[in-house]
Write a protein that binds this DNA or RNA. Structure first.
Lengths: 245, 245
DNA sequence: GGCATTTAAATGTCTGACAATTTGATTGGC
DNA sequence: GCCAATCAAATTGTCAGACATTTAAATGCC
């Protein structure tokens, strides 16, 4: 199709794009071996280092993997969920930090997405999901927990909620939204009182899912979003006040 | 923190990871210039080609950009939404095709995510969003439209719906879900009758958003999901029958 | 002072070589 | 004949040095 190589791009970028197209369009199947670097260099009429740079670009996106030795080489990679998770989280985190997305916008997106999972989660949650959520709630109730640990537990709780929907595509899409929020959440100082409020809402969510009550879970999530927004606004106000002094 | 360089990884991968950590952890800020390749080579005690491969890895993830010439070099990239979109779509598409995700699972995820946008979209949709949706509906009504063009218009319609929520983070997260479905949707042959049904549901969604009626939009989306699932099941059944012959 | 030229710095590319690693065949011992 | 150790071949990983290309700043001319 789009066989027009961008003339302004570097050679290594053009070659990477050509191979990427071949993979994405299905002309190369999973675990198929690419020609050796020397052969590719000849095919594209470039030198081996140039081919290597192209292959490294693809390797960075987990599209290929390489192995040394005889019968080694570059292979079309079977993209696993965990690889995709990692990339999505990195990209989402950077996007949030670099575009200076407001706490409000990120929070709104995150909870909107989580509510999308709720009806499915209420339907399909298994005992393991509930157990994870209960365990994280218990951890969050412990005194002396650092703010970072509280945040991490919060993420684990919400991931369990997402996973309870039993849809790997949904879990993948939401991994970025939930994890990327963590740096923003880490700016918040969780007082004993706010922790108590969050734990209570988490419990309500777990209870609702256990009772297969999607509406109750959604309502609790709405309240949690509102409460989180309040906490975020307080932090931002405090920051602004400090900066204005 | 994790200053333990993975000894089994390639040098170029280790260097890429070191620089990536520096960027992600904020030790390098946006638009800051990295040392030249020669300086990096000296710092890490490796050769220039090795450094270059590391930089290409980062460039593939849009973490850095490079410029030639005096005062050129590698700069920490300001990750724009469109860059992130592209990466997410590529990753999502591959993930769906390689893990052989069922049409059902992908479809369920997509519509669940879209419904997450609906309340916000009903609240904030502007005249431009409605105009885009109406235009795409009009295109979809035209006879003689190829299935690919119909699918592309469908994607455009749904992207307008997502964008109407007015939350860039949400738009980013959903870009992958909506676009990655397109190859799966392209397997469907849209008859005149099914197109008519889809157009009618699209119109109901646009009407509902125009009336700020989130519930009506959600209900239409539910019906659209059910109808799409039916179409998908028919295709799969036909395929299975053909394969079984 | 403004414009064309030069120059320097940096990335992009090439060539050739060697090191490291893995697989498969060969060879030797029993 | 069978098994193990060894060796050869193929391939990626790394290095060194060189040249081409591009870009912006410095310089000189008018």
């Amino acid at each position: 199709m789009k066989n027009a190589p961008d003339p302004k791009a570097d050679l290594s970028a053009q070659i990477a794009q050509a191979i990427r197209d071949a993979i994405v369009e299905g002309r190369m199947i999973v675990d198929e071996r690419l020609p050796s670097e020397a052969e590719l260099a000849e095919q594209f009429s470039v030198s081996r280092p140039t081919v290597r740079e192209a292959l490294k670009r693809l390797a960075a996106q987990s599209l290929i993997r390489t192995a040394r030795g005889a019968f080694g080489g570059a292979f079309v990679n079977h993209l696993r969920y965990e690889d995709a998770y990692g990339q999505q989280i990195t990209t989402s985190t950077l996007l949030l930090s670099m575009n200076a997305v407001s706490f409000e916008t990120a929070c709104e997106a995150r909870y909107a997405l989580e509510r999308a999972c709720t009806p499915l989660a209420a339907d399909r949650r298994g005992p393991d999901h509930l157990a994870t959520m209960r365990a994280e709630i218990h951890r969050q109730s412990q005194a002396g927990l650092s703010d970072e640990a509280f945040c991490a537990s919060d993420v684990a709780f919400h991931r369990a909620l997402v996973d309870a929907a039993g849809n790997p595509v949904l879990s993948y899409q939401l991994a970025g939204a939930v994890e990327a929020m963590q740096p923003l959440m880490n700016m918040i100082t969780f007082t004993a009182r706010s922790r108590e409020a969050i734990v209570r809402l988490h419990s309500r969510i777990a209870d609702a899912l256990q009772a297969h009550d999607a509406a109750a879970a959604e309502s609790a999530l709405h309240e949690l979003e509102a409460y989180t927004q309040t906490l975020g606004r307080d932090v931002m106000a405090a920051r602004a006040a400090r900066a204005g002094q």
